[in-house]
């Protein structure tokens, strides 16, 4: 790791934070999030972190959320699309009968009843008390059963050596990874990188917050306008909800 790379990373992180601070979208994260967790303090089941995607504000050409996630979590690929990881991707949905198309971001849906957690033999796939679904990279044996079980194709297997890892998002060849809902940011009282980027550069389509707090922005929006889960028929009670699908 060269000094140049480090400074570039520091610059980009700073720049992203500055940009985000300057371009706060109304109603997205002006409200204070739950207080930052102290180190060693367990996640609380008093909150359930969730994400609302307003697909009416998400445009086909925009991938700000994807770029921000790549930068934040360091999963930039090596140009091998079949095996490169994707924590978040833009999906185009088209109704063949009407031609109606939509674009939306798809990532780990942070299910209340996550199939990946059910099938993981070593309990490396786990759900925190606050609803965030994670992979413990120290316990993952790389069996990929979670990838077979996930209905959203949210997970990636690391097919080769990884470089330029972020300290807060460790990765390892031979293990499985996926969106962490930027747990390192959430624990520090911040919103996920995708939400910040969507507010700054995109359409402000992403709302992050506590689903259990009726006064939170996300709860109020859900109460007022409703939203759908992808593959709601599976009964997984996802933490990511979509408005307008």
């Amino acid at each position: 790791m060269s000094a140049t790379d480090t400074s570039r990373r520091r610059f980009l992180t700073g720049a992203a934070a500055a940009a985000a601070g300057l371009a706060v979208a109304p109603g997205v994260f002006l409200m204070p999030l739950a207080q930052a967790r102290r180190a060693g303090e367990p996640a609380s089941s008093d909150v359930r972190w969730g994400l609302l995607v307003d697909t009416t504000r998400c445009s086909d050409g925009c991938d700000a959320c994807v770029r921000a996630c790549k930068e934040e979590n360091g999963w930039e690929g090596v140009g091998r699309p079949r095996t490169d990881a994707q924590w978040i991707r833009k999906v185009k949905v088209r109704d063949p009968r009407t031609g109606h198309t939509q674009s939306l971001p798809l990532m780990c849906q942070h299910c209340k009843h996550p199939p990946c957690v059910d099938v993981c033999p070593t309990a490396a796939s786990m759900k925190r008390a606050d609803g965030i679904v994670l992979v413990d990279k120290h316990v993952c044996i790389g069996c990929r059963y979670c990838m077979m079980a996930c209905p959203y194709k949210a997970r990636s297997f690391i097919h080769e050596d990884v470089h330029d890892q972020r300290a807060h998002a460790p990765r390892g060849k031979g293990t499985v990874e996926s969106c962490t809902l930027c747990v390192h940011r959430v624990d520090a009282g911040r919103v996920p990188a995708c939400v910040e980027a969507c507010a700054a550069e995109g359409g402000g389509a992403l709302v992050f917050g506590d689903l259990k707090d009726p006064s939170s922005e996300i709860s109020r929006r859900l109460a007022a306008h409703g939203a759908e889960e992808i593959r709601a028929d599976l009964g997984l009670d996802t933490g990511v909800r979509y408005y307008g699908i």
Partner: peptide, 23 residues
């Protein structure tokens, strides 16, 4: 496996809801 060297982990960490663990 992605990490065959971690076979010992599979022998010491169990999630009994997983049919793999049962296996």
């Amino acid at each position: 496996l992605g990490r065959p060297d971690r076979l010992i982990v599979a022998m010491t960490h169990y999630n009994f809801k997983s049919i793999f663990a049962w296996n």
